Computed example of a mutant assay.
Amino acid sequence: MSRRPAVLGGPPLLADPLPMTRPTIVADDELFGHFGAIFDSGMLTNGPAVAEFERQVAAYLRVDDVIAVSSCTTGLMLVLRCLSASGSVILPSFTFMASGHAVRWNDLRPRFADCEPDTFTLDPQAVRNCSGDDVSVVLGVHTFGVPSDADELAQAAAARGAELIFDAAHGLGGRYRDGTRIGSKGLAEVFSLSPTKALSTGEGGLIATNDPGLAAELRLARNYGNPGDYDSRMIGLNARMTELAAAIGLRNLPLLDATLDRRRRLAGRYAETLATLPVRLQRVPDGTTPVYKDFTVLVTDEEFGLSRDQLAAALAAEGVSTRTYFDPPLHRQRAYTESAAQLPVTEMITRKCLTLPLYSHMPFDLVDRVCEAMALAYAHRHEIAATMGDER
Rank of each mutant, 00 (worst) to 15 (best):
P12D: 04
P12T: 01
L14N: 07
P17K: 12
P19S: 11
M20V: 11
M20D: 06
T21E: 06
P23Y: 01
T24M: 02
D28M: 11
L31C: 07
F35R: 15
T45W: 11
P48F: 14
F53T: 09
F53D: 04
R55E: 13
R55D: 13
A58E: 05
L61H: 10
D65T: 14
A68Y: 03
T73L: 14
V79A: 00
V89I: 09
F94L: 15
M97Y: 02
A98V: 11
S99K: 00
A102I: 02
A102W: 02
W105M: 12
D107S: 13
R111N: 02
R111P: 02
F112I: 09
F120G: 07
Q125E: 13
C130H: 03
F144S: 08
D149C: 10
A157P: 06
G161F: 01
I165K: 02
D167I: 04
L172N: 04
Y176E: 13
R177L: 10
R177G: 02
D178A: 07
I182Q: 14
L187K: 14
F191P: 01
T196H: 14
L199K: 05
L199A: 10
G202R: 07
E203I: 12
G205T: 10
I207W: 03
I207P: 03
T209L: 04
D211Q: 04
G213M: 06
L214Q: 07
L218D: 06
A221Y: 07
R222V: 12
R222D: 00
P227G: 10
D229K: 07
R233F: 00
L237K: 09
R240A: 06
M241R: 12
T242R: 09
E243G: 09
L244S: 08
A245V: 01
A245C: 11
I248R: 14
R251E: 08
N252W: 08
L255H: 12
T259L: 06
R262E: 05
R264H: 09
L266W: 06
Y270Q: 03
E272L: 14
E272S: 15
E272W: 00
T273C: 11
T276M: 10
P285G: 10
D286F: 12
V291G: 07
L298M: 11
V299K: 01
G305W: 09
R308Y: 00
D309V: 11
A312N: 09
L315A: 09
A316H: 12
A316V: 00
G319W: 09
G319E: 05
T324A: 04
P328M: 08
H331R: 05
H331G: 05
R334V: 07
A341G: 05
V345L: 03
V345C: 08
E347Y: 09
M348A: 15
T350V: 15
L358P: 03
M362T: 04
P363G: 08
R369P: 01
V370K: 11
V370S: 08
V370R: 10
M374N: 11
A377W: 11
Y378A: 12
H380E: 15
H380T: 01
M388K: 01
D390E: 14
